[in-house]
Amino acid sequence: MAYASSGTFERDTDYIPDRITRDGRKPEHGPVDGDLWPVEPGRYRLVAAKACPWATRSLIVRQLLGLEDVISVGLCGPTHDERSWTFDLDPGGVDPVLGIERLQQAYLARFPDYPKGITVPAIVDVPSGQVVTNDFPWITHDLFFEWREHHRADAPDLWPSHLRDEMDDVMERVYTEVNNGVYRCGFAGSQEAYDAAYDRLWTALDWLEDRLSRSRYLMGDTLTEADVRLWTTLARFDAVYHGHFKCNRQKLTEMPNLWGYARDLYALPAFSDNTDFEQIKTHYYVVHKDINPTQIVPKGPDLTTWQEPHGRG
C-alpha cells in the first residue's frame, strides 16, 4: 500500500498486463501493454483465495460461465506473510497441479527479480509454471469475452452490449468509491483523510441503496459483471469493513435494499460457493497487524441471516 502526503490510501494498480485471448489475437477492448497468450482449455490454473475480494470475483465469474472443467483452480489459505500467499489448504502445503508451496514461485519463475507484491488472483501457465497475469479486472473481462466458446450453454450475459456504456460508468464508481473506498477508510493515515474517505463511501452506498430500490440488480433485471464486483465488498461489510475498517455509519443489514440484494446474490451457488466468511475474517484480522495488532478474530456477526428470504424476485 502507499499513502499520499495527506495520509490518503492509494492502491498500487501496476499489475502484470498480459492478456489471454482467443488464438492470442489482439483484444477488441482494453489495453495491450503486455504479451498475448492463446485461449487453451486445460493449460491455465487460476490461483485465488476466498479471503480476497479481488480474487473472489474471478472465482464467481468462472463458475457462472461454467468454466470449471476448462480452467483449474488452486486455492490459497486465508493468511499470508510478506513474501507470498501459500497453499496451506492443500495436503503438505503444496499445490497439487503446480507443485509449489508459494504463489511467489510462479512469479519468480517468470520474473526472477519481480519487485512487487505477490497478489491473487493470478493465472499461471501450467506447462511452464510461470505466472501469466494478475490484472484482476481484465481477468474476469476476458473470461467472458475471450473464452466464450467454452461457456456453458445457459451462461449469463455478464456484459450486455446495450448496457455496456452505462455499466462501465457504474463499475467505475463501484470500484473507486466502494471496492476501494472501504480501504481508503481502513488505511487512512490521518483523521482528515479518514473523514473524507468515510463521506465518499457513504455517498456511494446511499446512491446504491437508492438505485437498488428500483431494480433487482445494478443494471436492471439482468445479472452482470457489475453485480459481481459490488458483491465482494458487500459480503465483507458487516464481518470486516464495518468495524475493522471503521465504515460504521450503518451495517449492511440496516440498509434494506442493499441487504436484500446481497442475499439475492448469495442465493446463487456461484456466489455462496465462493464466499467463506471465516476465511474472510481470519485474513483481515490476522494479516492487518498494523490495524489489529492483537490479531484477535471476532466471533460475530451472526451469519445465519444470510439464509433469510430476500424477497427480490
Rank of each mutant, 00 (worst) to 15 (best):
P115A: 09
A267F: 00
K26I: 12
Y114M: 07
C52A: 04
P137S: 06
G313L: 14
F136W: 15
W259H: 10
A51M: 06
L67W: 07
W202T: 10
G24L: 12
I71K: 07
P301C: 04
L89T: 13
L46E: 08
C76E: 02
P115C: 08
F245K: 03
P309F: 01
S272T: 02
D23N: 15
Y15V: 08
T294R: 01
R211M: 13
E146L: 10
V94G: 11
A106T: 11
T233H: 07
E308D: 15
S272R: 12
E209L: 10
E28P: 02
T304C: 00
G260E: 00
D206A: 13
P256N: 11
V47C: 14
I280E: 01
F277V: 14
A262S: 12
C247W: 00
G42K: 08
V97E: 15
M171G: 06
M1N: 11
A122K: 07
I16G: 06
A267C: 01
G260N: 00
Q191F: 10
A55Y: 00
R43C: 02
T79E: 14
A235C: 03
A239H: 00
S213P: 03
D142Y: 01
A204T: 06
Y44I: 06
T140W: 02
R229H: 07
D210C: 08
Y261I: 01
F277L: 15
M255L: 15
D135V: 10
G30T: 08
S190P: 09
G42E: 07
R25S: 14
A106Q: 07
R22L: 12
D154R: 12
D69L: 04
T140Q: 09
